[in-house]
C-alpha cells in the first residue's frame, strides 16, 4: 500500500500495476476511465484525466527505465527495453487523486521548462507538450523521490 497519507487515507483507493510498456497504455487508460465512470464522473472529466494518464504513463515508459537522459532521448523513438513496473492508483471523492509510482531512475517531470508555445510552426518543437497539458488540466501535482521510487501525485476537483 502507498505510504503517502494523502492517498492512503482514502478507503476507495484502487490500484493497477503493469509493466512500463506502450502496449499497456490502453489498459491503464481503461482502468482510470472505468473507475471514473463507476463514480459517475462526467465524460469531460474522464477524457481530461485519460489525457493526463496517457502523458504521464508514456513519459514513464520512455524515460524512467531508459539509459538516456530526458534531453538525449528526444525525439522519443526508442522506448527502453528494460521496462520495470508502474503502479497507478486512483481515489475518487470530492476530488480525483491519481498517483503514479515507478522504480526507475530519479526523474521529476515538473522540473523541465515549459515549451515556448508562441513560436511559429517552423520553430515549434513537441517536447514538453504532454507535461504542459498535465499541468494545465490538474489542480495540483506533487513529485517526490522516496525509497528509490518516483511518486507523482495528481489532484483534480470533481466539477
Amino acid at each position: 500500500m502507498p505510504k503517502n497519507k494523502d492517498i492512503n487515507n482514502l478507503i476507495n483507493l484502487k490500484e493497477f500495476v503493469t509493466t512500463a510498456k506502450i502496449e499497456n497504455l490502453d489498459a491503464v487508460k481503461d482502468f482510470i476511465t472505468g473507475e471514473l465512470a463507476a463514480c459517475n464522473c462526467t465524460a469531460k472529466l474522464q477524457t481530461q484525466l485519460a489525457l493526463v494518464v496517457e502523458e504521464i504513463f508514456v513519459n514513464i515508459v520512455y524515460y524512467a527505465y531508459s539509459e538516456d537522459t530526458w534531453a538525449s532521448s528526444l525525439p522519443r523513438e526508442q522506448p527502453s527495453t528494460a521496462a520495470g513496473n508502474v503502479a497507478i492508483r486512483i481515489a475518487v471523492g470530492d476530488e480525483v487523486i491519481i498517483e503514479f509510482e515507478d522504480c526507475g531512475k530519479p526523474y521529476n517531470p515538473l522540473e523541465k521548462d515549459d515549451p515556448d508555445i508562441t513560436l511559429d510552426a517552423e520553430k515549434r518543437e513537441v517536447g514538453g507538450l504532454g507535461i504542459l497539458l498535465v499541468k494545465s488540466i490538474a489542480d495540483a501535482i506533487k513529485y517526490r523521490y522516496e525509497d528509490n521510487k518516483n511518486i507523482l501525485l495528481i489532484k483534480k476537483k470533481v466539477a
Binding site: 489525457l51 502523458e55 508514456v58 510552426a121 517552423e122 515549434r124 513537441v126 507538450l129 497539458l133
Partner: peptide, 18 residues
C-alpha cells in the same frame, strides 16, 4: 481525443505542408 503524440503528427504535417 488528441494527446501530445497526436499533436506531434499534426505539427509534422503542418511543417511538411509549409
Amino acid at each position: 481525443f488528441v494527446s501530445s503524440a497526436g499533436l506531434r503528427i499534426l505539427l509534422m504535417g503542418e511543417k511538411a505542408a509549409k
